[in-house]
């Protein structure tokens, strides 16, 4: 399955389950501690810490990330890349542990087939 197809299926699965599809934030990140976005949740931090009210109870995104801390590991392991994409689903005070699982089983289950 091509990566672009994984992306499409991931987003449409969560969209069908009440998540708003939010575009990726640009890679440069304005924060004294971070130069680049390093995780899917980075752009949502203000909603998690209650600094701003989340515009949607649920969101999903494919976030562009750059992390260069492990740059020397690149190529030597199977899983370190300086650029990567994070598929995420997010609940801002909406569902928690128990209600997450039915949503999760979907894409992993599909992926297995």
């Amino acid at each position: 399955m091509r990566t672009a197809e994984i992306r499409r299926r991931f987003l449409s699965h969560f969209e069908a389950n009440g998540h708003t599809v939010v575009p990726s934030a640009p890679l440069p990140f304005d924060d004294p501690n971070l130069m680049f976005v390093v995780a899917g949740m980075t752009q949502f931090v203000p909603y998690f810490i209650g600094q701003q009210a989340a515009p949607w109870p649920r969101a999903t995104s494919v976030q562009k990330c750059v992390r260069t801390l492990d740059i020397d590991e690149v190529g030597k392991t199977t899983r370190h890349g300086t650029f990567f994409q994070m598929n995420g689903n997010f609940s801002f005070g909406d569902y928690f542990k128990d209600r997450r699982d039915p949503l999760r089983v979907g894409p992993v289950d599909q992926a297995d087939r």
Binding site: Y47, G50, Q85, N87, F90
Partner: peptide
């Protein structure tokens, strides 16, 4: 935090 939230991250490249 003010709320209990969910944040998941599925590494696209790994999948």
């Amino acid at each position: 935090l003010p709320n209990k939230n969910i944040d998941t991250g599925m590494g696209m490249e790994r999948v």
